[in-house]
């Protein structure tokens, strides 16, 4: 059984359809990467999966259980986390408060998770009392991912976690994503840095105009000359 499976997903904003039948599936220990041109509907797909956008046709399942158009709050309880592309922190809250908000749905003591997140993102530990809005772009991205990790997710959706970061920072974030995945967390992420992202991907999806253009393993996509030419910059 797949960890996450989306079948023939349609949806959009208002009356306009952006997703025109997307299929996608990843297993529990996998990293899935969605690439594609700007405006292809990558962010829209993640929002639709996370219940932030009405799915008008098709279905989405988490471990075989239907979650189509579920409430995001419900999905959080099912240990699914989402890091949006933009506005993914609470700028006036401190770093620590941002992480605490990630743990809002928890009823237990999550102090050890907090320490784990600080251990995983050392720059945050020094800034825990600082408003998150005062951090650098890379540090904000860490806050955003840290917030999502607070529920100890079994599936994490990441929308362009390396957007606007320098190559060094980017490699660093990818490395951390691999580590998170190695700890047993399924990852579905959208990336502009397609080649580097597909390198760490078990599954890759090339999305164009709200539909799958190519679906394969990460390596096969990189080695596919057609994909390389059109989507990976040669």
């Amino acid at each position: 059984m797949h960890l996450l499976e989306a079948k023939n997903v349609h949806g959009g904003y208002g009356g306009m359809n952006i997703l025109n039948g997307v299929d996608l599936a990843i297993n529990a220990d996998e990293i899935g990467v969605i690439v594609g041109p700007n405006g292809a509907g990558k962010s829209t797909l993640l929002k639709a999966i996370f219940g932030l956008l009405r799915v008008t046709e098709g279905s989405i399942e988490l471990r075989g259980e239907p979650i189509t158009n579920a409430d995001p709050g419900e999905l959080v309880l099912k240990k699914m986390a989402f890091v949006p592309q933009e506005k993914n922190i609470f700028p006036s809250l401190t770093v620590q408060e941002n992480l605490e908000m990630g743990a809002y749905s928890r009823r237990d003591n999550y102090q050890h998770i907090l320490e784990q997140v600080y251990h995983f993102f050392p720059p945050l530990a020094d800034k825990r009392a600082q408003p998150a809005g005062e951090l650098s772009g890379g540090q904000r991205q860490m806050v955003a991912m840290g917030r999502a990790l607070m529920i100890e997710p079994s599936l994490i959706l990441l929308d362009e976690p390396t957007a606007g970061l320098s190559p060094l920072y980017m490699a660093d974030i990818f490395e951390r994503i691999v580590t998170i995945n190695a700890a047993g967390v399924g990852v579905l992420m959208v990336e502009q840095h397609a080649k580097q992202a597909l390198k760490i991907a078990h599954k890759g999806f090339v999305l164009v105009a709200g539909q799958n253009r190519f679906t394969d393993t990460g390596m096969n996509l990189i080695n596919n000359p057609e994909v390389a030419k059109a989507f990976l910059g040669g």
């Binding site: 996370f50 932030l52 995001p72 709050g73 959080v76 309880l77 989402f82 949006p84 506005k87 993914n88 922190i89 609470f90 700028p91 006036s92 809250l93 408060e97 605490e100 908000m101 990630g102 809002y104 749905s105 917030r147 529920i151």
Partner: peptide, 23 residues
């Protein structure tokens, strides 16, 4: 308080508050 912080969070970024599972 947890609820008070959630209130500030929602004032900051209502969409992210929803995504975080804040009631």
């Amino acid at each position: 308080s947890k609820l008070g912080k959630a209130m500030r969070a929602m004032s900051d970024n209502p969409d992210l508050a929803r995504v975080s599972g804040i009631n």
